[in-house]
Structures are given as structure tokens and as C-alpha cells.
């Protein structure tokens, strides 16, 4: 595999309440790799993922998608990125199927049907029950079902392992591996170590300590 960079970030600096979360952070997410962002609570993992997903605007620094500045290719970038936040993003009064169908109208999710996706993620039989009857782990699985359906090359996942059981984590790792083997890329934040060989780690706390 080539080590071509999909998303590069250069000299990112972010401060909240005049307190720097991280400064001069540079790096890249490359084709075929899983970038795991680690660090203690409050070190800016979620903020970094939000900046990469262009939810949070950049104060200082640049973001480049396939070599061109993100502001030049924002629409095509959005069509090629799947973001799952630490909140599942599901409407509790709707069923998992309805939630996924709604999402597929907003984002290109047509690699498989919502029923197939839910079956692959271990929610067969729960397609048509309201989400408020599901457990936290099942909700997380329903949110991750998007990953089975999406055509996006870059996945940005904020704490995807939260509330998942051993089987759920194994299922997710299989999904991630299959994705990067097909030329995709993943950036995720997590406290747990992944056993995956494709994982590269970006430790935010180390940066902060180097600053001090």
C-alpha cells in the first residue's frame, strides 16, 4: 500500500477560555491506516476530531484533503467522510431502521441496505423497535451500522468503543480492518488499546507535556 495522505493537518492550535488545548499540532491520516488519538480526559481529543470533521472551525493552522485546502473542496470532502460522535446521533423515538433511512438521505450510505447493516453489526431482530428500548451498547451498535453502509473513505470516530461489549469491539475492529484494507482511513479516539496491526497512535497528552 502507498502511504498517501488523505487528510493532512498542519500547525493546528486551539484554545478554550484562553487556555491552549493543543498547539502547533501537525500530522496526517494516510490511506490504509488507523490513527488512534489518545490522551487523558479534557486534552482535546473530541475537539481535534471536530476540527478534522470541520464542525469546529480552525483558529490557527490548515487542513488539506487529498492535497488541496479544505475550503476549496468542502462539499466533496463532506461526501467522503463519515463522522460518528460520542453521542450516538439517533432519535430515540424512531427505530434503528428509520434512523438509518433518514441518514441515508443526508449522506451517501448505499453500500448495503439498513437491514443488512443492522444484521452485520449484531442487531438483527431489533430493526423495528423504537431506539429508546435499546441498551446503551445496542444504541452504539446501531450508530456504528452507518459504517457498514457508508461509501466514505475517511472515518472519524469519537470514542466508538464506549458501551460496547467484547463481541461488539471485535465486530468493530473487523469493520475497521476491512475498511483500511480497501484503501480507506480511520481516525478514532479511544482510551482502550486496539489490537489491530494497522493502528498508529497520536498521543495528545505527550504534546501537552512537551509544551510544559
Amino acid at each position: 500500500m502507498s502511504s498517501q495522505a488523505l487528510l493532512e493537518f498542519q500547525a493546528l492550535t486551539f484554545e478554550r477560555d484562553d487556555w491552549p488545548l493543543f498547539s502547533d499540532l501537525s500530522g496526517a491520516i494516510k490511506v490504509g491506516e488507523i490513527l488512534q488519538i489518545t490522551g487523558p480526559n479534557g486534552c482535546g481529543k473530541t475537539t481535534l476530531l471536530h476540527i478534522l470533521a470541520t464542525i469546529q472551525p480552525i483558529n490557527v493552522g490548515t487542513l488539506r484533503w487529498k492535497g488541496s485546502d479544505i475550503s476549496q473542496c468542502h462539499q466533496s470532502y463532506l461526501a467522503d467522510v463519515a463522522f460518528i460522535g460520542h453521542k450516538p446521533g439517533l432519535k430515540l423515538s424512531l427505530t434503528p431502521r428509520e434512523n438509518l433511512q433518514w441518514l441515508s438521505k443526508l449522506q451517501p450510505l448505499n453500500r448495503c441496505t439498513s437491514a443488512e447493516a443492522l444484521a452485520r453489526i449484531g442487531l438483527a431482530g431489533f430493526e423495528d423497535v423504537p431506539c429508546y428500548t435499546l441498551s446503551a451498547g445496542q444504541l452504539r451498535r446501531a450508530a456504528l451500522a452507518v459504517l457498514c453502509m457508508t461509501q466514505a473513505r475517511l472515518w472519524l470516530l469519537d470514542e466508538p468503543l464506549t458501551a460496547l461489549d467484547v463481541q461488539g469491539i471485535a465486530d468493530l475492529e473487523t469493520l475497521l480492518l476491512a475498511h483500511v484494507e480497501q484503501g480507506g482511513a480511520v481516525a478514532l479516539s479511544s482510551h482502550q488499546a486496539l489490537t489491530n496491526p494497522a493502528v498508529r497512535t497520536l498521543a495528545l497528552d505527550a504534546m501537552a507535556e512537551a509544551e510544559l
Partner: peptide, 10 residues
């Protein structure tokens, strides 16, 4: 009132 409600100045 709005200007005093956010956590970042930007």
C-alpha cells in the same frame, strides 16, 4: 448577553 455565554472568544 449572547457575547457572555460562549466559552471561546472566536
Amino acid at each position: 448577553a449572547l457575547s457572555r455565554s460562549f466559552s471561546t472568544r472566536e
